[in-house]
Amino acid sequence: MDASFEPPERPGTLSSLLRWTVACAAMPPLLLPALALGPLRPSSSDALMRTWCLWARRVFGVDVDVVDHNEGGYDDGAPYVFLQLNQTSLSEAFVTTAALPRWALIFMNIEFAALPFIGWVPVSQGSVVVVRQWSAQARRAVDRAADAMRRGACFYMSIEGRRSPDGALGPYKKGAAVLAIRSGARIVPMVFHGARDVLPFGEWRVRPGRVRVELLPAIETEGLSYADRDALVERLRVLAQSQGLGRPPG
């Protein structure tokens, strides 16, 4: 972002409490049906989740600009991994739906899955939960996701797997590369600008503002093998750095 950019002023406690009350009040009427519909009609469940996310953005005064370098050219029925290259803020929980061009399951950690409604609903739709500290379970989670993708499912996931407290890029995990290679899916790298300014790490008061999400050109994985996973992860990290994310090398 521009060096002269100043984050919006943090709203007051009373104003923030009121906004959270209004945002959360819409959860039961929208997300309880979404939870029930998840196993039966996941697309309808997703529509309700998107409606709540839109409501939350309006309540908090958060606008989203989406720049799609693929110009919407996504093949119907083809698997994609929509891969977030920088995870910095919980605001992404209600921002991401505005940027995803297709409905996608989520490859999520157990901490996010435990969040009331916004974590439960994706689980009900068939999203895959991973316990990263449990390597055997993590491998089974990748197997489940790869099987779903071979049937045409798409997944959204973060390559870091957790939020960065200071905006620097964290370690990149190999699971996303392995999943894409095994399923032959294209990777659509996603970068978020401004999400941390809207809701900084450790903060609960959401600041009105604008988040820009870029969907970078899709990366083909056809012809790659398991042995190529490290090179693919490194390619993604270099791509993130080229977008000005995290700290410069060295």
Rank of each mutant, 00 (worst) to 15 (best):
residue 2 D to V: 11
residue 8 P to R: 12
residue 8 P to L: 01
residue 10 R to Q: 13
residue 15 S to P: 03
residue 16 S to A: 13
residue 18 L to Q: 11
residue 19 R to D: 15
residue 19 R to C: 13
residue 21 T to N: 01
residue 22 V to W: 02
residue 23 A to N: 05
residue 25 A to K: 11
residue 33 P to H: 00
residue 34 A to D: 10
residue 34 A to K: 09
residue 36 A to Y: 02
residue 43 S to W: 05
residue 47 A to N: 11
residue 52 W to Q: 07
residue 52 W to P: 06
residue 56 A to I: 06
residue 56 A to S: 12
residue 58 R to H: 15
residue 58 R to V: 10
residue 59 V to L: 08
residue 63 D to T: 14
residue 64 V to H: 06
residue 65 D to K: 10
residue 67 V to L: 13
residue 68 D to G: 03
residue 69 H to R: 15
residue 70 N to G: 01
residue 75 D to H: 13
residue 78 A to V: 04
residue 79 P to N: 02
residue 90 L to T: 11
residue 91 S to T: 12
residue 93 A to R: 00
residue 94 F to E: 05
residue 98 A to W: 05
residue 103 W to T: 07
residue 104 A to D: 08
residue 105 L to E: 12
residue 105 L to C: 10
residue 108 M to W: 11
residue 109 N to D: 14
residue 111 E to S: 12
residue 121 V to H: 04
residue 125 Q to N: 11
residue 129 V to A: 09
residue 130 V to H: 08
residue 131 V to F: 08
residue 131 V to D: 14
residue 131 V to K: 13
residue 132 R to V: 04
residue 134 W to H: 15
residue 136 A to W: 10
residue 141 A to K: 06
residue 142 V to Q: 08
residue 142 V to F: 11
residue 143 D to M: 05
residue 145 A to P: 01
residue 146 A to G: 03
residue 147 D to L: 10
residue 147 D to E: 13
residue 148 A to F: 04
residue 150 R to L: 05
residue 151 R to A: 15
residue 154 C to Q: 04
residue 154 C to R: 05
residue 157 M to C: 12
residue 159 I to N: 02
residue 160 E to P: 00
residue 160 E to S: 01
residue 162 R to N: 09
residue 164 S to Q: 06
residue 166 D to L: 09
residue 167 G to Y: 10
residue 168 A to G: 11
residue 170 G to V: 08
residue 172 Y to A: 14
residue 172 Y to T: 11
residue 172 Y to Q: 07
residue 172 Y to K: 14
residue 173 K to H: 10
residue 176 A to G: 15
residue 180 A to F: 13
residue 180 A to D: 06
residue 180 A to G: 14
residue 181 I to M: 03
residue 181 I to P: 01
residue 182 R to H: 04
residue 185 A to F: 12
residue 186 R to D: 07
residue 187 I to Q: 10
residue 188 V to I: 14
residue 190 M to W: 04
residue 190 M to H: 01
residue 194 G to P: 07
residue 198 V to L: 06
residue 201 F to L: 14
residue 201 F to K: 10
residue 202 G to Y: 00
residue 202 G to M: 01
residue 204 W to I: 03
residue 206 V to L: 02
residue 212 R to F: 05
residue 213 V to C: 02
residue 215 L to K: 01
residue 216 L to S: 01
residue 220 E to I: 12
residue 222 E to P: 10
residue 223 G to E: 09
residue 225 S to W: 09
residue 226 Y to H: 14
residue 228 D to C: 06
residue 228 D to R: 11
residue 229 R to W: 03
residue 231 A to S: 11
residue 232 L to N: 03
residue 234 E to Q: 12
residue 235 R to M: 00
residue 235 R to Q: 15
residue 236 L to W: 02
residue 237 R to F: 01
residue 241 Q to W: 01
residue 242 S to Y: 02
residue 244 G to Y: 10
residue 246 G to A: 04
residue 247 R to Y: 01
residue 250 G to F: 07
